[in-house]
Computed example of a mutant assay.
Amino acid sequence: MPPRFKPKAGSRFAAAQAAPGLASHADGFHTYLKAECGMAANSVAAYVRDLNRFLDWVKEQPSRNVGPNAVTLDFLLAYQTDLSSVGYAPSTVGRHLVTLKQFFRYLVLEGVTTENPAELLDSPKLWDRLPAVLSPQKVEAFLDAPQIVPGEGETAAALVLRDRATLSLLYATGCRASEVIGLKIADVRLGGGWARCLGKGDKERVVGLNPRCRAALEEYLADARPVLAGENRGVERPSVRGEGAPLLLSRTGRALTRATVWDLVKKYAVLSGCSAKVSPHTLRHSFATHMLAGGADLRALQELLGHASIRTTQVYTHVEHTRLKAVHAQHHPRA
């Protein structure tokens, strides 16, 4: 991999190249991930967090000031052993190794070093884990869980309608929690039955809205969102008005957060009698599995989920085969 042109003298990147330690290149790597790799903010944060963990480990070693050119495969294998010894799952160890490979690839591009020792690292072998899904009956109970309690007030009723719309969006579209909270008012077309969402790597895709989801959104937009936006109290919040404003609002009129979505999913999972392990991604898995069970094409499902590779989508075929085997065992006369 050829190095790039050297940066202009006096720039912070030139200063980083002149510095001997690994930590001096962390800021440049952060910028590289955002500007050149086009990663989503959450992905960038994960890479930076993993790199900082490696840099902290380096500080504890006798060769704490080791430079990029002095890093060997044995040095990185020692770090891999440390990751495993503290109890990290194989998938987590593999993610940390991917970060190291990307970091040293960046150093090669910048001309800081000529080799990438991390490329020789083998990721741990992973078990094929089937995603947990809810049955259609469980999903129905889950979506019915948000109920307005008479006498609790206007704001409480508005929050219930918001929760109902949020849960319906998660299951109807198969979107990730970050994609749902990123929806703007202009992204939703209730008349056409579709929405435009922004996925990983800022890739846009169109997802469908079923009649139940459209009804929940219509009720939320008509009766709940104005309350949460403060319109009924004459509160001026320009940031939550207009086509570019967030679709889903918090109690205080701000954009909904991922943490809030996780909390409300856990809350209604308990209320509906589902497992406490249910998460927003469980609804995404359930959406995909139920789509395949209904005869959806795998390629179409890949587009709806926003998967870059069909191999990622194929895991749901295994989930569906598991269900079919259970049906066979239950109904076959010789089972």
Rank of each mutant, 00 (worst) to 15 (best):
Y268N: 01
S250N: 14
G201D: 13
H321R: 15
Q302T: 06
Y32M: 11
V71E: 00
A141N: 00
L249W: 01
L51M: 07
S11L: 08
C197R: 01
R189G: 08
A229N: 12
E119K: 10
Q17D: 09
D263P: 00
V71T: 03
A300P: 05
A156C: 08
G87S: 09
P211L: 11
A222Q: 14
Y106G: 05
A186H: 08
E243N: 07
F29D: 06
A23P: 04
Y88A: 01
L130F: 01
A157N: 15
L298V: 12
Y171I: 09
S178M: 15
L304Y: 06
A157E: 15
H285A: 01
F54R: 00
A70E: 08
E243S: 13
K325S: 10
A14D: 13
A16N: 05
E303I: 07
S84W: 03
K125W: 11
G294C: 10
L298F: 08
R53C: 11
A216P: 00
L33P: 01
N52V: 04
V86Y: 07
L217V: 13
A308Q: 10
L73F: 11
L126C: 12
K267E: 11
L264K: 04
Y32H: 14
E119F: 06
R53S: 12
T317L: 14
Q302D: 09
D187N: 15
H96V: 02
Q17E: 15
S279Y: 02
E140Q: 04
H285W: 07
D50M: 01
G208H: 11
E231V: 05
W127T: 14
L100K: 02
A9D: 14
E152L: 13
L33M: 06
V327C: 14
S286E: 01
A157K: 10
A269P: 00
L107F: 13
L221G: 04
T257H: 11
G230C: 14
R64D: 06
